[in-house]
Computed example of a mutant assay.
Amino acid sequence: MSRELSRKRRNIIVIGGSAGSLEPLRRILTDLTPDLDAAIFITQHMGSRHATKLHEILGTDSGLPVLPAEDGGRICEGEVRIAQPDQHLVLDSETVHLTRGPRENQARPAIDPLFRTAAAHHQARVIAVLLSGYLSDGVAGLSAVQKCGGLTIVQDPDAALVRDMPQNALHHVAPDFTGDAGRIAELLNQLAGQHTADPGPVPETILAEARMALGRGLSIPAEDRMGKRSPFACPSCNGNLWEIDDEILRYRCHVGHAYTADALSEAQAGRLDEALWAALRGLRERTELLRRLAREGREAGRGSSVQGFETSAHEIEAQAAVLENFILTRAREQD
């Protein structure tokens, strides 16, 4: 049965994972005590086809009820809530919110918005857990939890199927605890319900980004206060990116897309691939049009223009061959 939260205890647990995190999540939820004095929120990167069943998968052996997160629902102890497909799971002081805000680190739901909003509104009451996955979503969120007095737990990279996220967390943030899934469950059983100190002030940058995650406060002046304008364009909307240099180098645009540096690099690579293929398509279409013009000119007896069309078609076809070879070579090098 769900219970109202005490404001003096560690009773908000937020867990984030990506590739390779399903089995650790199942182990953690299986090992948690059924009377755990905490509300648990989980964001996992997963394709929408499977994510709708995630609460059923994770709830199979759990002693706690595992339910889909619901927009507008109250935060209650004794239950686990799961992020839903294509929606960020974020928290305010009393309420759960599901938003279709801009992607962070190319993900929606993303881990950082959950961790950051939990930190901003619940401070020392938060325990944040980061599990297996690629790149570094969740690392900035862990930092926010620490700055607001919460505790952080990171899966041991050697125990993770995909070590990127845990390894990046260890590199950029000194977590309070590390361990495998069994150890993480033990820690949560021990730490949940502990009394906390009175909360201190929340850093303004964390409050600002929490407001953004809740769909409030997005603006160019807000970004100017958080960081400096970079020379880079947002891969999602082509707007200017602001550089935020704290524990981990990050970027934000004023409509809310956000990237750690490695996620930005990957997003740029994807956009570059799209641009190269579009350029190749354009060259081939241009070649074909010039050849049609040459044929029409020949049939109409306009010999003076035919040679120019044929020469241009031949030159552009050669350019297309060079570009295609570059694209395919680049793709092999990235594999």
Rank of each mutant, 00 (worst) to 15 (best):
S2A: 14
L5P: 03
R7L: 14
R7N: 12
I13S: 01
G17Q: 02
S18R: 04
A19Q: 07
L29H: 03
P34V: 09
L36N: 04
A39H: 04
H55P: 00
G63K: 05
P68R: 11
G72L: 07
G72N: 02
S93K: 15
H97Q: 04
T99K: 06
E104L: 07
Q106D: 09
F115S: 04
H122Y: 13
A124G: 13
I127D: 06
S132I: 02
G150K: 01
R163H: 11
M165I: 07
P166A: 03
Q167M: 10
L170E: 05
H172N: 08
A181N: 09
R183K: 15
L187T: 06
L187V: 07
N189W: 09
Q194L: 15
G200V: 08
P201N: 11
V202W: 07
A208Q: 13
E209R: 15
L214E: 12
R216L: 13
L218D: 05
G227C: 06
K228G: 02
F232C: 02
C237N: 08
E243S: 10
I248A: 01
V255Y: 03
H257Q: 01
L264G: 02
A267D: 04
A278F: 10
L280K: 12
G282L: 12
L283E: 10
E285Y: 07
A294W: 09
E310A: 13
T311M: 09
T311W: 01
S312R: 15
A320S: 15
L323V: 11
Q334V: 08
D335L: 15
